[in-house]
Computed example of a mutant assay.
Amino acid sequence: MKIAIITLPLHTNYGGILQAYALQTVLQRMGHDVQHLQPKVEFHPLHPAWKMPFVWSNRLLRKYFGGEWRLPIFEHPHRWIRRYSDVFIYKHIEMRPLLDEEWNTSLAKDYDVFMVGSDQVWRPCYALPLERYFLSFLNDTCSNPRIAYAASFGTKNCEFSSNQILSCRKLLQKFSFISVREQSGVEICNQLFGVNASHVLDPTLLLSKDDYLKLIQNQTPGKGNLMVYILDETPDTRLFISQVAASEKLTPFNTNYSLGNRLGIPQLPVENWLRGFVDAKLIITDSFHACVFAIIFNKPFICIGNNERGMTRFHSLLDLFGLQHCLFIEKQLFEIPKINWEKVNLKLKQLRIGSLLSLEQSLNTLMITIPV
């Protein structure tokens, strides 16, 4: 079948990029043709045209006299920031960019199935416009099957408005198969939307460590053995990292470059980020997907709770593998988590088989009903 996947925009979020790559890879191995439908990126000027000569002159001076050698002079800073992640996206992910007006029912003739997922595609602050991620662009006459794989609300309590609940409930009830990434999502689907949902693994966990090693086989080892990937850095987290490094005699290396604070430095390539898990003896992170890849690569990790980005995701993931002791809460006594990787890997294998079977069965059922 030809499957259209609707996920959050792919740009500099490593987890978002790799979950899209993983779901696509799994579906292709099942024999399907896959495309990700994505909003077309338009880099609007940050300044009015009359001001640009002054901006370029300022950048030139900063570049040659301020030592900011990576600062782009003429290129849009956001395009510059994502230059390496875009290379990975265009090389490994099948995409179809769409303008706003192109998100309509005419897409139905190009695909057999529409699939939503994964990541926080059902969290209003990230999914804009929200109804698009419930396939609102397909009208009532469209008979194409609709599926959700490992969709996430992000938080334990649904953040939808009452109007959004009403509109999305009608849309969700048109889905043939619904699966969510967190156990709390199963309850939200049942209680607020009146539909049944299965609890499955994030797509990144459907691929093996060897699958990811193939992506980084040409990457050279980095410098350092304490991988730090902090999305929301604070003075407390910086102090904690330095204390861990000193206590364990480890050399930290940072794999996150903030888009907002360092517009002159491009985001590290996806391959470099993955390579960090190979090089690390320990990982400190407040990222859901960094925890996922620490599990895949069997690396001890400390997960710093991040309430703003959704704690439910962390609890759900760590509960699955008996790793709640890897969650660090401020002011608690520090200790490197001891992990029984044999037990974790056995659990991962079982959950992976179950999630793949669930996805494959849902698609096989549709193949019987879709005319060739």
Rank of each mutant, 00 (worst) to 15 (best):
Q183E: 13
I188A: 02
I188M: 07
Q191W: 04
F193C: 02
G194W: 06
V195Q: 06
A197H: 09
A197E: 04
A197P: 03
S198T: 10
S198L: 09
H199L: 13
V200N: 01
D202M: 13
P203V: 14
T204K: 04
L207T: 02
S208A: 12
S208N: 12
L213I: 14
K214C: 13
N218P: 06
Q219G: 11
G222I: 02
G222S: 11
G224W: 10
G224M: 11
N225Y: 09
N225G: 03
L226K: 02
M227D: 00
V228K: 00
T234Q: 05
P235E: 13
D236F: 14
T237I: 15
L239A: 14
F240I: 11
I241L: 07
Q243G: 03
V244Q: 04
A246I: 11
T251P: 07
T251E: 14
T251W: 09
P252D: 13
N254Y: 02
T255N: 00
T255S: 03
T255W: 01
Y257K: 07
Q267Y: 05
Q267T: 02
L274K: 01
L274D: 00
R275V: 10
F277E: 04
A280H: 03
A280C: 15
K281F: 06
I283C: 04
D286R: 01
D286H: 07
V292A: 09
I295Q: 01
F297K: 02
F301S: 06
I302S: 05
I302W: 02
C303R: 07
G305D: 11
N307D: 13
N307T: 14
N307C: 11
E308H: 11
R309P: 13
R309D: 12
